[in-house]
């Protein structure tokens, strides 16, 4: 392990001049140089990227995140852990987005395998991965996109027994499940572990998104009490469409990033309703 100051010198020595999108000059460092420092210093690429950002040297892969994000913001994302529960339609897109945005630690959970009927909308599902565990595919995809991300994968379904242990220490948990009973189990565990939860659901050209902090009433405002809620909804007759799933998943990723950075307005005690048939996006007050 090398000293921080020595690490900073190495990063500075291997940085080069680049431009931000608005042409502001900046210092940047490439993937190969980050990997080189990581090997020699005996620390992870994620830690090299964080040290680099703390010296205002922007890893080149995040240049287009600036100036919407500051170097400090990007370092916060790299230090954060997000758990994505369900790696199908919503979860596949959320995983893709968060890996690209540089969320440093991703916790991926799904006990399912890919089937042909997933191909219409699940970004992680490709023909040669039929019958492959979704969590395996998701972890591999994250590493292909961003090798600096630390990935933990669970090829198992979330249930009452394992939920708390899997999500503990998460800065944000994202509900990408496809059953109402699973959503209530996840919400209960999130509240117990003090985790902030982003939850979304889709059916056909419709969907909704909300954000639930541990002290918020949460899902019962949407579905009624857990014991009286049906297990499935309108998706059993309307199916799930790629364009709507992707859009709603993007809204989940956006909420998660805003929570981590403490920026923008959140959908706490609100429900953003998406209707692509009528082209309407409405934010409703739940209380």
């Amino acid at each position: 392990m090398i000293l921080d100051i020595e690490l900073q010198y190495k990063i500075i020595a291997l940085s080069n001049k680049k431009e931000l999108p608005d042409k502001t000059p900046c210092n940047s460092i490439s993937i190969n140089n980050i990997a080189d420092i990581s090997r020699k210093a005996g620390i992870s690429c994620r830690e090299v990227e964080i040290a680099s950002l703390e010296s205002e040297i922007i890893p080149e892969r995040y240049i287009r995140n600036m100036k919407s994000f500051s170097a400090t913001d990007q370092a916060i994302l790299l230090k954060s852990m997000i758990t994505i529960v369900g790696l199908g339609g919503l979860g596949g897109v959320v995983t893709e987005i968060l890996a690209r945005m540089g969320i440093g630690r991703l916790n991926l959970i799904d006990g399912d395998i890919f089937e042909e009927s997933n191909l219409n909308r699940q970004y992680l599902c490709v023909e040669n991965l039929i019958a492959t565990p979704k969590a395996e595919a998701a972890a591999k995809r994250v590493k292909e996109i961003n090798s600096s991300v630390d990935v933990q994968k669970y090829s198992e379904y979330l249930d009452k027994e394992n939920a708390s242990g899997i999500i503990e220490d998460s800065d944000v948990v994202i509900d990408c499940l496809d059953s109402l009973s699973g959503r209530f189990i996840l919400e209960k565990a999130s509240k117990k572990e003090g985790c902030r939860l982003v939850s979304a659901a889709v059916a056909g050209n419709y969907g909704h998104v909300t954000t639930i902090f541990p002290e918020d009433p949460g899902l019962r405002l949407i579905y009624g009490e857990a014991e009286n809620a049906p297990n499935k909804g309108a998706e059993t007759s309307l199916g799930a469409l790629s364009h709507c799933v992707s859009l709603v998943a993007s809204l989940e990723a956006s909420e998660a990033i805003k929570i981590l950075l403490n920026k923008g307005s959140l959908l706490r005690n609100k429900l953003l309703l998406v209707d692509l048939d009528g082209n309407s996006f409405e934010t409703m007050q739940l209380i």
């Binding site: 369900g86 199908g88 339609g89 919503l90 979860g91 509900d175 990408c176 499940l177 496809d178 059953s179 109402l180 959503r183 979304a200 659901a201 889709v202 059916a203 419709y206 969907g207 909704h208 579905y223 809620a229 049906p230 297990n231 499935k232 909804g233 309108a234 998706e235 199916g239 799930a240 309703l273 409405e282 409703m284």
Partner: peptide
């Protein structure tokens, strides 16, 4: 007035 059915797909 808007009315929404239960939706749970993912």
């Amino acid at each position: 007035i808007g009315i929404f059915p239960p939706v749970g797909g993912g």
